[in-house]
Nucleic acid binder design. Sequence first.
DNA 1: AATGAATGAGATTTCATTCAT
DNA 2: GATGAATGAAATCTCATTCAT
Lengths: 218, 218, 218, 218
Amino acid sequence: MIDAQMPSKPAKGWTRRKQARPGEILDAALKVFAEKGFAAARMDDIAARAGVTKGTIYLYFPSKEEVFKTLARESIGATLTEVTQRANSFEGSTREFLTMFMVIVGNLVQYGDRAVLPKIIIAESGNFPELARFWRKEVIDKGMAMMTRLIARGVARGEVRELPPAYVARLIIAPFILSIIWRTTFAQTDDVPFDYQKFLATHLEVLLNGLEPQGSAK
Amino acid sequence: MIDAQMPSKPAKGWTRRKQARPGEILDAALKVFAEKGFAAARMDDIAARAGVTKGTIYLYFPSKEEVFKTLARESIGATLTEVTQRANSFEGSTREFLTMFMVIVGNLVQYGDRAVLPKIIIAESGNFPELARFWRKEVIDKGMAMMTRLIARGVARGEVRELPPAYVARLIIAPFILSIIWRTTFAQTDDVPFDYQKFLATHLEVLLNGLEPQGSAK
Amino acid sequence: MIDAQMPSKPAKGWTRRKQARPGEILDAALKVFAEKGFAAARMDDIAARAGVTKGTIYLYFPSKEEVFKTLARESIGATLTEVTQRANSFEGSTREFLTMFMVIVGNLVQYGDRAVLPKIIIAESGNFPELARFWRKEVIDKGMAMMTRLIARGVARGEVRELPPAYVARLIIAPFILSIIWRTTFAQTDDVPFDYQKFLATHLEVLLNGLEPQGSAK
Amino acid sequence: MIDAQMPSKPAKGWTRRKQARPGEILDAALKVFAEKGFAAARMDDIAARAGVTKGTIYLYFPSKEEVFKTLARESIGATLTEVTQRANSFEGSTREFLTMFMVIVGNLVQYGDRAVLPKIIIAESGNFPELARFWRKEVIDKGMAMMTRLIARGVARGEVRELPPAYVARLIIAPFILSIIWRTTFAQTDDVPFDYQKFLATHLEVLLNGLEPQGSAK
DNA sequence: AATGAATGAGATTTCATTCAT
DNA sequence: GATGAATGAAATCTCATTCAT
């Protein structure tokens, strides 16, 4: 469910229902937009999946575009903030951090319902440049800054080989992007299911090894 | 230019034009579809960019969908085949291969006009599942098989650490995917331009180091 | 009004409207198709005549073709069935039957709104061969069978001269066809209006006389 | 072939060809219009059937509409004039005339390539009211006048029963119309082929008998 | 608050017509 | 004279949006 819409006080009966509506609609929209893209998604599709009728959506959102933008803007907030905060307050070694990161983010990538969002943003960046900018600023830049800081600290501490931290940060992220794309695009065509755990474990091993400072003992 | 459209005979006047038209249209379509996605792309947009009018497209393609499918199907052929063949006949060390691969594919990713295709496929896989299957089979599986084979050989030769080759193959590819996404989605919002060379150089260093067999001398 | 559309339950408000809509649309379509033919009829024309807009038609019919086919298939049912049943249960003399037939069918031809249907079918048989087959089977063959049976009985009873009943049946029908064509094609160019009653009275007289067995007294 | 287009002097080589072109196009158009109607007929269809390309038609006719009108106006001329003249100079009995008429017109109906014209006129009268008027005046009224005159003479001579000659004329024509409609609309769905000869023979017998003056000996 | 019938702008597609070759 | 590539007006059809119930 979409976080921003979580009613703070769990009202009951159809009042609860009423308050939950926008969230239900956004949940439905997330799936439909991920599957078809913005233009090909029909309000009827979204409505049907949310268990309401087309008209109802307009009680909560002024337009299809606004549903889309709300979705793209609001539904990563909580997760990102949480992960970033955890990372920023992390005091252990780079190795420990990366190990933890693989597990946490790996889970989000594999099971999280918001993992389809990047695909949506990628697909629609041409039609909604302001969204691309928003994501760039609010999600990517923030995430990158956090990761870059950690790598830079690792380098400073002598835990990580001398490499440009910003690009190392992207190297760390890249396999997660690939996993998301795989899950949202090709997973259904798999004969043997893709093993995200194994993939990320391999990623971790290569990474830890690869980042190890030159000349350090094995 | 689209490979399949190379006219075998020079021909003159509008005969030459006629032979070139499908290719021109596909070139235009590639850009428009990459920018807007299938549904939001208007035939008028494609026509305008190809320097013709709407009606002309229908002289060469029966429908918008067919333009799209032709594009998705035909326009990776040559490049992929070439890269794969080069790779398969490569006899040097894994390290040499990877170094070469970074340069060649890095250039395609950074400057090639067909680099937008993966984005198109990702965005439209929901609406054209048969295309997703086609790409899976013809592009991804073939590329993966080639890379997996090379890594496996590296392991056998003792050049590469014992790791599952299929997943290592994906690790090698992931930063290229990220680069393509960056180029087609966020590059225009960059203040400091993204340095693909530097990124891939970092990738290469981490990779070579990370894949080095355990216990080997540094 | 189209028979199949009679709403079984009265219902109220726009529910009543909704039930009536398909019938209203078909009524409008009948007139437009009769006037312009299938290809030249515009959905806007039909919509305007039905008092709705283009889009509304698509709430009830998936395509222009389907409007046309529904029309051609459904809107003779009731009338034909009724006439056929009356004819089949008729016990009087052939002379009495023919007299009655002239009056009843003459009225349909002259005043009925479904009289334009044959013209539509004739005009579009080339574009909708399946409709020609449908009409052949469901309307013409049934009507012919009924009439042929009656004439054959007349022959058997000695009321009708020895002639091939199937062709006599067509002779009986021919002037009705001519009347329909006249009404739908040339009537507006008449200075002196065509007198259908008089025409069919003449038909009846020639027919009764012409069918009289040879050598019977006058 | 269309009569008006017959070149008066049989030129030879491609000059002959050039002169024959309009006629060939009209012949092709006749068939296509009969099959599909005006709106659904494509210039490409007509061109293909005439063995030329679309552009060529425009060398001889300014528009599709003009092809159609030329066709509808010019291609009954000769036949009608001939039949009418023969009829007007006919001096024999009404019975003899009708017998002859059945044979001559029956042949045209059954085998003539211009028999499809009435169907075309019927189908397009709504879209080309001026054509309906033209046909009404030039074809129907002339034919009717001729026939009516003959019947009136028959009545005056005591060969025909006292009946309104104009309506008797139509009774005579009606089965021919039905035959034409059958041939152009339903003939291809026939299991047992329709026997036009037998039908018209039956028509003749009923007619001759039915028109016989009351009280005349059998 | 919710519905769903109705609207109409906007897209794809067709094809008569033009015109350079 | 003939061609056929190109055009663009006009039609069908879709679907976001409105609004009476």
